[in-house]
Simulated scan of single mutants.
Amino acid sequence: MKFQENQHFSHKHILNALKLDIGEEIDCNACEKPITDPLHGCNSCHYYLHDECLNTPRSLQHICHPSHPLTLLPNPTYSSRSFSCNACGSEGNAFSFSCAHCEFDLHIYCAKLPVKIFIDKHPHELKLLFNSPCKDENVVFVCDVCHGTVNRDNWVYYCSHCDFGTHSNCTTGYVTRKEEGNSSQSGNEYLMESTARKVEQIEAYNKAQEKLMAATLKAQIQAEGSRAVLDLVDSGSHRKYYYY
């Protein structure tokens, strides 16, 4: 069943809004994960995208890679036709956020990982780190969920209080808690909101300063006006005597 059409940069044909048939299973050509409704696709090419993947921005300034913006690519540009994700370390063959200058690549879902999460295997909040928490290069960090080793350059969810950590992709079924602040936000969203809050604070401070300056100026004008009136009264109330 079709609802609307969309021309996406990743595909030469129009992508139509579709609904899956009961029991139908297909994978997204962007994130390579199973699709549930809603979705857009081209049936003639068997090309399908989650609506969320369809609307992924074409570029991203991520806090893990501040030197350059990351560009959304529909296919890896390496000769191997695949990329190794700098977040989770696993291979990808579809969409990626990529920096050509640094050969830095992220799965699109890794780029959207929240900066803080809770999982059922640990009572405390886990924070996203962009490299191993082990300062000693000779120490290998072991995931407390799968018990596999973690590459020093890959992302980790970590509780420093308990020295508990996991691979970024070992947190399936994690929950985020909006009441904890920014727990449900990705790193980039958190940075943008934090910046927005700072801008709002600066604007509020400037407005307060302007009001204070206006009130001070008004008081000065009123004071000067009062003194002028008193001078006029004083000059009119004193009788002048002329002596001959």
Rank of each mutant, 00 (worst) to 15 (best):
M1Y: 04
F3P: 11
F3M: 02
Q4H: 02
Q7G: 00
S10T: 05
K12H: 12
H13Q: 13
L20F: 02
G23N: 07
E25G: 04
E25A: 08
D27F: 07
C28D: 02
E32L: 12
K33Q: 12
P34R: 13
L39E: 00
N43L: 14
N43Y: 00
Y47A: 04
L49E: 00
E52V: 11
L54R: 10
N55W: 10
P57R: 14
Q61D: 09
P66N: 03
S67I: 14
H68D: 13
P69M: 11
P69D: 12
P74E: 08
Y78P: 00
S79Q: 11
S79D: 13
S84M: 14
N86C: 13
G89I: 01
G92F: 10
G92C: 01
N93W: 09
C102T: 05
D105V: 03
L106F: 03
L106A: 06
L106Q: 07
H107E: 03
I108S: 01
C110S: 01
F118W: 12
F118V: 03
P123L: 00
E125N: 00
K127T: 15
E137R: 11
C143N: 09
C146Y: 02
H147C: 09
R152K: 15
D153T: 12
V156R: 02
Y158R: 04
C159L: 07
H161A: 15
G165H: 13
G165S: 10
T171S: 05
G173E: 09
G173S: 05
Y174F: 15
R177W: 04
E179R: 12
E180A: 13
S183H: 08
S184Y: 10
S186W: 01
T195N: 11
A204K: 15
Y205I: 14
N206W: 10
Q209F: 07
L212S: 05
L212E: 14
M213D: 07
A214G: 01
K218D: 10
A219H: 14
A219N: 12
Q220L: 08
E224H: 03
S226R: 10
A228L: 07
L230H: 06
D231K: 06
L232K: 04
V233D: 03
R239W: 09
R239Y: 08
K240F: 06
K240L: 13
Y243H: 13
